[in-house]
Amino acid sequence: MAKPYDHTSMGGEDREFPPTQWTWILSGEKRDALLAELCQAYWKPVYCYLRAKGFANEQAKDLVQGFFSEKVLGQELVEKADPQRGRFRSLMLRAVHNYAISVHRAERPCQSLDEDHESPSPAGDPEAAFDRAWADGLLHEVLKELELECSARGKTAHWCIFRDWLLEPGPQGQDNQRMSDLCRKYGVADASAAYHMVENVKRRFRAILRDRLGSLVGPDDDLDEEIRRFIEIFSRGPARK
């Protein structure tokens, strides 16, 4: 079995032989499913990246289509990927960045690579737009999982109070009144019990979020740092379009 970190000079720098398991997957029946999964997970981040790069809506959609057809479905990207190494997200980001440059070059052949790199982004921060869309997807999956878990554990009221309390806060200084209202709405005995239910669901949200993110950002990445980056991106508001 090939070692996960075996390097080779074949094909230029920044290429590694994928581990045996990965090669087997690509040649096996799971390949189509994997590629479909990649398209589903990364279509929106790639689209948002291209929009933030300044491509118009229809053009960005066409480019996303081209990117997945040529780079992802064409296996070039997946063959470079090693699930044991770092973030697949970063690989995707680099790939779409290079793809956007190659498209730009094809359209404007006289423009130099430096110009491509240095030209200011016309519509915001493309990398942040990519990460923002990716984090959106992550939050969606985590909340879906959390709701499913609450339901399976007979904690539907926990979920509802968590949702209402955390996501739809009332006016400041009226917390106790608001929690009392929620208790009445969901049949909870008192505010103390309701606060405990919220904490309970928060703990599970945290566990699921960190569990998911932990594998997606790579074993050596700092989870807290990654979460702070997403907080910072969402604090900034949406990219200009």
């Binding site: 969606h140 949702r163 945290r206 993110l213 949406p238």
Partner: peptide, 18 residues
């Protein structure tokens, strides 16, 4: 998002992770 979250809500949720 299943809850149609705004950026403030997403930030609050992510903060729970810390």
């Amino acid at each position: 998002d299943i809850l149609r979250l705004n950026d403030r809500q997403k930030t609050r949720l992510l903060s729970l992770g810390l």
